[in-house]
Design a protein around this nucleic acid. Sequence first.
DNA 1: TCTGGGGTCCTAGGACCC
DNA 2: TCTGGGGTCCTAGGACCC
Length: 403
Amino acid sequence: MHLDMNAFFASVEQACNPTLRGRPIAVVGSAKRTVVTTASYEARLYGVKTGMNRYEAKKACPSLIFVTGDNRKYIDTSVRVLDILKDYSPAIEVYSIDEAFADLTGCSALLGSPEEISRSIKERIRSSLGLTCSIGIAPNKLLAKLASDMKKPDGLVVIREEDVGGALKDLPVKELWGIGPRLTSHLALLGVRTCGELADFPASILRERFGIIGERLKLMGRGIDSSPVVPAGEEEEAKSVGHSTTLPKDVSDREEIKRYLLKLSEMVGNRARGHKLKGRRVTLTLRYPDFYTFSRQKSLSCPANDTRVIFQSAISILEGIRLKTAVRLLGVSISELTKDLKQMELFDGERRRERLLDAVDSINGRFGDFTLTWATLLEHNEPSAGVISPAWRPAGVKRVNVR
DNA sequence: TCTGGGGTCCTAGGACCC
DNA sequence: TCTGGGGTCCTAGGACCC
């Protein structure tokens, strides 16, 4: 089963504020340079879409109401949805803040057919949270995700084993999870527009044209997918931890850029330390006003999660870059992660440093991020954008942006 | 009046080594 | 007169997802 909350952030806002119900609203971040994260169905009728900036959205729908996102609300609601799901299956995969998979194999004897289970889940979400969702039921994740997409809002679609061929025959390939705009147009050049055509296309050509993805494409066209439902808590360790920010306005001054980098480095370091992760690679990402975006990396001699080490690496990468114009976005991330085993620190200085970071982290954990911070950042006290990331998870390193 | 932020996976070229 | 083949690691970029 795949469950997808309908217009999640917007629906949550409408559920807790009756004056927004039935009206076109768009959930946006608090920063000036923000985009529509979710539009209500009323707004979608006018063509308001995720990713539009305020002006595009307002142009599409002059009566549009902008609502600044409230992460706390969405996280709480998401957790409550997951709590409901847990009553029906022990294997719940949290795919994002508003999507989850549940393995219902073996649940029928106790709880009824997958459809009965789904109706029960939908009813509980509706009555206790005032929200609708779309549910897809199918033999695998690929098809369940497709099924949940087929009827919105408030859908319940079942794709049975014997109906797979018929359901996919004339379905455009871009509807499949994993086939985006580029693959769609490349496939179109080969004359492949529907899943049926993809299923019949010679595997050798797909392999030659798309490499390892080509192997999977033909299977996808036939609705075959063997990826498992990965239950919450059994996910693989994260592979990278990063933060990026679009600056309130484009910046040329390198000292100002460095202040942002210190802030981003601290956000990354704090989150990595909180999960006992260290990274052996630091990546600096920049975006120019024309949206040209590029990154430069640096490998460290030993893994680190110390803000100062991350910051110094970012600085040294920056120093190797000749900036062509002002900078619009900055990002810092660490990767090549290893679990920080807190093995005996060899040197006194390192032990003291660790204790310092622990102390800073625990103070900030208790009183709020950046309560205790570098003096450099004091004159740099813009409120953070507070933009929501739908890729949020209820636990683990991916739990970010909680405020 | 412009266009967010969090990730994963894959590819491809070059350095370097044997 | 012309220069193999195998491997790993590092780096940059792009496709895709929410």
